[in-house]
Amino acid sequence: MNVLGLVNYWAFIFLMMVGFYILISQGNLIKKIVGLSVFQTSVFILYISMGKIRGGTAPILMEGDPVYSNPLPHVLILTAIVVGVATTALGLSLVVRIHEAYGTVEEDEIHDLDVAEAE
């Protein structure tokens, strides 16, 4: 087994786990959204690195017969990035509305307010 050939996956896992950790450990909702986008970018890196062929070039047809990297992951991720920013905007607008309703974006304080209201 060639361990060096798996380094790209480990880099992706590290970034993904950092994003995941930000997502579950931080109480601030904006920080959570930033963590989510770190997570998202790590998945993009996974896909793109799977499409890479050693010695390949960008998939734009040229004269001669070069090796092209796999264009399919590029297409998927291209659309995913734009969808990602649209969903991030949706999340941020939810955060703004939460801030208007509760006056805070800290998860703990929101929870306390909810508990106080229920009693």
Binding site: V82, V85, A86, A89, L92, S93, V96
Partner: peptide, 16 residues
């Protein structure tokens, strides 16, 4: 679509 959506979302945040 992308142009319209991006500018619309920005307007929303800015108008707030």
């Amino acid at each position: 679509t992308v142009f319209g959506v991006m500018v619309a979302i920005f307007y929303m945040f800015a108008a707030r």
